[in-house]
Simulated scan of single mutants.
Amino acid sequence: MFRLIPIMLILTLPGCFLAPGMDMNNDNGMTEIELPTNRDGQLVKEKVRIVPITADLIIERESNRRQAINSLPPVDPNKTSYRIGPQDRLQITVWEHPELNDPGGEKIMPELAGKVVDENGDLYYPYVGSMHVAGKTVSEARADLTRELSKYFKKVKLDIRVLSFQAHRVAVVGEVVRPGVQTMNETPLTVAEAITRAGGSTKDSDFANVALARDGKLYKLDVQSMYEKGLTTQNLLLKDGDVLNVGDQKDSKVFVMGEANRQQAIQINKGRMSLSQALAEASGVDFNTSRPGDIYVIRAGDMHPEIFQLDAESPDAMILADQFPLQAHDTLFIGTAGVTQWSRVLNQILPGSFTAIMSQAAMMGM
């Protein structure tokens, strides 16, 4: 009888007092602890709302995703043609006036031929003097130079072409074969063309996670959708100063914790993984020890934490799970059933096997 008194005392303690391991507690739909959160540019501590995964939530987030696609920088049709800039080398040929052309003609080395646009975007030419050409297309520069030379010569006919493109550059970095700086020429440079010039993908490339840095802003591109679904909105025209970063798929993982049959880090394949896929990869939920109503997706979100909860008590919830997309670095946490928590407590605290003690108690008539 006295050997069973500790059992009776333990059973009178609150469940949260001795339950081992992690458990996801919430306070009126909010996290139990305060988390660092970026609020209007300032880091603050606050509790985060736990959002139920419902059909309305999935519709809302899909709508936001499509709006994000539409918020990519628009293509300016006026800037699709190459515009002359500093350090470009131009070859100017004036017909019937050889004295205005490069002396030596074809004997000049290519890297020394033509005239270089200076740092201010100006070009010096005989009779005309200094003429600003930066920001102009070849056709516009030709028209301006023709007009100025016409003040000194009759029926001026000339041609301009860019010998060396140096003014406009983009950088392609990350998981490409040949990362580095690329010069832009008269052919508009798109995301797909820039990646091809860089030698294409490596074995670790994550085309669903491509970032474009432009004018102090960062845009997320899904190049994988462009290749697989023809989503041409992702194939942006690049401009001078852009930095294109192809992500590493080794950094795109989902972490499964709690009462899963297999706790592990799961690789996201081609940027796509749903909640139901992650559960399947983890060999499902352990229904003997878990609390299916408490399946959580925890998303740190670069100081913008989010927590979502799926109530999987009903099999219908798996439809929602299949429609809920996960992101890299998400943590999938499956809650522990209360009975399981108590069983673990008693096995840790009581001497010997809890099951054996309870059997002995039964034999003694308790």
Rank of each mutant, 00 (worst) to 15 (best):
A317M: 02
F287I: 13
T331M: 09
N288I: 12
T336L: 08
V297M: 03
N347Q: 11
Q267K: 13
L350T: 08
I319E: 09
L346D: 11
Q309T: 09
L275V: 01
Q360A: 15
I266D: 03
D294N: 15
M303H: 13
Q360Y: 11
I349L: 11
A356Y: 09
A337V: 08
L320A: 06
F324K: 06
A280L: 06
T331R: 09
Q277S: 10
T355A: 15
M358P: 07
I298T: 06
P325E: 06
F324C: 07
G301T: 06
D286G: 09
A321C: 04
L326W: 01
L332Q: 04
R272Y: 05
D286S: 11
E281R: 09
M318G: 09
D302P: 07
H329F: 10
L326R: 04
T340R: 10
Q309S: 13
R272M: 11
V285I: 13
I307E: 04
S359T: 15
Q277Y: 00
V297K: 04
A312R: 01
Q267W: 05
S290E: 03
S353W: 02
N269C: 14
D302C: 11
A337E: 08
S359A: 15
L326M: 05
D311S: 07
A265Q: 10
I268Y: 00
A282Q: 00
E306P: 08
H304K: 15
G293H: 01
T336S: 10
Q341I: 10
I268W: 00
Q360D: 14
T331D: 07
G284P: 00
S314F: 03
D316L: 14
A356W: 06
P325N: 12
E313P: 11
H329C: 12
G271Q: 02
M303N: 15
L346S: 13
V339M: 12
A356E: 13
Y296F: 12
G271T: 00
L350F: 02
Q327K: 12
I349P: 04
R344L: 06
A321S: 04
T336W: 00
D316P: 11
A328L: 07
A278N: 03
D330S: 05
V339Y: 12
I268V: 06
D302M: 14
R299M: 05
A317S: 07
Q267H: 12
S353H: 05
T331W: 01
V297G: 04
Q348G: 14
A337K: 11
F287S: 14
A280I: 06
A282E: 02
L310I: 04
I266C: 05
I268R: 01
T340I: 05
L332T: 04
A337Q: 10
F308P: 00
A312W: 00
S353T: 07
G284H: 01
G271E: 00
Y296W: 09
